[in-house]
Amino acid sequence: MVIDWSVAIRSLPILLKGAVITLELTAGAVAMGVVIGMFMALARLSKRWPLRAFATAYIDFLRGTPLLVQIFLVYFAAPQLFHFQPPDKYPYIAGILAMGLNSGAYIAEIFRAGIQSIDRGQSEAARSLGMTQAQALRYIILPQAIKRVIPPLGNEFIAMLKDSSLVAVIAMEELFYSGKLIVGNTLQSFPIYGTVALIYLAMTMTISRILGVVERRLGKSDIR
C-alpha cells in the first residue's frame, strides 16, 4: 500500500471537527471534575468520618480502576442497572460523565494537596480572629490554595485530553474515532493516525504553553 498524504489533507476538516469534540469532552469532564473534586477534597478533610470514608472510597475506586472499564460501566452497565433506554446522544453524555467522574477523583487529590500545603499558621491566625472554620476556608485558605492548584489542574486537563481518545470505544466521534473511521475507508493508517497524533500534540503543546505563562504570572505574586 502506497502512502498517500493527500488523504490526510482531504480528511483534515473531519479530523479538526473531531478535535473540537475532543476539546468539548475534555472541558466538560474537567469542569465536572472540578465540582466533584472540590466536594471530595473537603469531604476527605472533614472531621466527620462518614464523609471521609465516602470520599476515600470514591477516590480509591476511580483511581484504582481503568478509565476504559469505567467508560463501559457508565455506557453499558448503567442503563442495565437503572433500567433506562439510552437516549440518542448517550455516547456524548456517557463520555463526559465517565471522564468527569474519573477526573473528579484526581482533582480531589489535587485540591486536598493544595489545601494542605497552606501553612497551618494561616488557619490559626484566621481562627484566632474569631472566624469559623468555614470562613477561614473561604476567605483565607481557598484563595491561596486555588493559586497553587492551577498548574496541576492544567496537567490534569492535558492528561484528560489524551485519555479522551478512550471514548472512541463507545462510538463517540471525537478526534481519534474520526481518524479510525477514515482509516477504515481509505486504509491510509500512517498518514491519518500520524495526523491525529500531530493534532493531539498541537493541542497539548498549546495548553502547556498557556499554562507556563499563567504559572509565571502567578509566581510573580506568590509569596512563600
Binding site: 501553612d119 499558621g121 494561616q122 490559626e124 491566625a125 484566621a126 483565607i140 491561596q144 509569596i223 512563600r224
Partner: peptide, 8 residues
C-alpha cells in the same frame, strides 16, 4: 504570632 501569619 511569632511568624506574623499575615494573609499574603
Amino acid at each position: 504570632f511569632q511568624r506574623f501569619n499575615l494573609f499574603p
